[in-house]
Computed example of a mutant assay.
Amino acid sequence: MSATELPPALAEIRDDFLAITKQERLQLLLEFSRDLPALPERLADHPELLERVEECQSPVFIITEVDEAGHVHLHATAPQEAPTTRGFASILAQGLDGLTVDDFFAVPDDFPFELGLTEAVSPLRLRGMVGMIGRAKRQVRAAIADS
């Protein structure tokens, strides 16, 4: 994967957003919000292991882990009442899952701006998603340093 190329799952998500009208993009984001993967039981029972993403207006918590095979897994929680933020968390949880560490770090920090949502959601919300990526990358760096 080159530095300008997205991993297949994220590229597909981006292409899905760009293939529809601006109004439909917001609807697709809401669909993603309903598909946020549930936390694994080991995390659901220990919410203190997740980190709050302060850049988000809504209370979003993430944890990004690297498994023994060197693949990244991002888990997130966001309230049902915050569908935009929840949708962004879902996009990242689904689009980043299973990437190698190198492919994960190759994802551009400004990926949220590639979804064509700048007219549908506020810049503050997009910066929240950028914040999620930044925190996830920091967590992976820490996990690698600890191993």
Rank of each mutant, 00 (worst) to 15 (best):
M1S: 08
S2H: 11
T4E: 15
P7T: 06
A9I: 13
E12S: 09
E12T: 10
I13N: 01
I13H: 07
D15N: 14
D16G: 11
D16M: 10
L18T: 11
A19W: 11
I20C: 11
K22R: 15
K22L: 14
E24I: 12
R25T: 03
L26V: 02
Q27A: 13
L28Q: 15
L29F: 04
F32H: 11
S33E: 03
R34M: 10
L36D: 00
A38H: 09
A38G: 04
L39H: 04
P40S: 12
P40C: 12
L43Q: 03
L43K: 03
L43I: 02
P47L: 07
L50G: 01
L50F: 05
L50P: 00
R52H: 00
R52K: 05
E54S: 02
E55F: 03
C56M: 00
S58C: 08
V60F: 00
I63M: 08
I63Y: 08
I63S: 07
I63K: 12
E65M: 12
D67G: 09
E68V: 04
H71Q: 13
H73Y: 10
L74I: 03
A76T: 00
A76S: 03
Q80R: 04
A82W: 01
A82Y: 01
P83N: 12
P83D: 09
T84V: 15
T85A: 12
G87T: 04
G87C: 06
F88Q: 00
F88E: 00
A89E: 00
A89M: 01
I91Y: 13
L92P: 01
L92C: 07
L96D: 01
L96R: 04
L96N: 03
G98P: 12
D103K: 13
F105W: 13
F105M: 14
A106S: 15
V107D: 06
P108L: 04
P108C: 06
D109V: 11
D109K: 12
D109F: 13
D110K: 13
P112Q: 10
F113H: 05
G116E: 07
A120S: 13
V121A: 06
V121T: 12
S122R: 05
P123R: 11
G128A: 03
G131E: 06
M132R: 01
G134M: 05
G134D: 07
R135V: 02
A136C: 06
A136R: 02
K137L: 04
R138D: 09
R138S: 07
Q139D: 14
V140H: 01
R141A: 05
R141W: 04
R141G: 01
A142I: 08
A143T: 13
I144N: 12
I144H: 13
I144M: 15
A145G: 02
S147Y: 15
